[in-house]
Simulated assay, not measured.
Amino acid sequence: MSELRSDRAGSDGAGPDRSGAVLVRAAGQLDQDTVGPLEAELLDAARKHSVVVLDTAGVTFADSSFLNLLLRVRRMTRLRLVEPPPRLLRLLEIAGVQDLLTISPGLEEAMRLP
């Protein structure tokens, strides 16, 4: 089961902040059977915004389908992961892609990055 929510960055939530960033929140299990809605949301966000901030704090499981999605989105826009849980960090490390992705410990920091 996965859950996602998309928020426009900025204090009023009405649109992207000055950096053009948009926030997407992902939660639950993200595998080949559940990643579809998040994929649609992230690809749409990547087409429309120069920066996509993905809050991954609520992700409880992720497989190569999710990893592949992250790498595809990264090629389309500046992708920032926020608060990845230890298991997700381990997946990124095992796959050797942790240095390809911008990882932030908190949302405020992710939104401030250039």
Rank of each mutant, 00 (worst) to 15 (best):
M1Q: 10
S2M: 08
S2W: 02
S2V: 09
L4H: 13
R5I: 05
S6R: 13
S6L: 14
A9K: 01
S11D: 15
S11K: 10
G15M: 05
G15P: 05
D17T: 12
R18A: 14
S19F: 04
A21D: 08
V22E: 05
R25D: 08
R25K: 13
R25Y: 09
A27M: 06
G28P: 04
G28V: 09
D31Q: 06
D33P: 00
T34A: 04
T34E: 09
T34C: 09
V35H: 00
V35K: 02
G36C: 08
P37S: 09
E39P: 07
A40W: 03
L42P: 14
L42Q: 07
D44H: 11
A46D: 03
R47S: 15
H49I: 07
V51H: 01
D55S: 09
A57T: 14
G58I: 03
T60C: 11
S65P: 06
F66Y: 07
L67W: 00
L67D: 01
L67K: 02
N68I: 07
N68W: 04
N68A: 09
N68C: 06
L69A: 03
L70G: 02
R74P: 08
R74N: 13
R74I: 01
R75A: 13
M76P: 04
T77W: 06
R78L: 13
L79A: 01
L79D: 02
R80W: 00
L81S: 03
V82T: 05
V82S: 03
E83S: 15
P84F: 09
P84R: 05
P85C: 10
P86K: 08
L89R: 12
L92T: 00
E93H: 14
A95M: 06
A95S: 14
G96W: 14
V97P: 00
V97D: 01
Q98K: 11
L100T: 08
L100H: 07
L101D: 01
S104R: 02
P105Q: 14
L107S: 14
E108A: 15
E109M: 06
A110L: 13
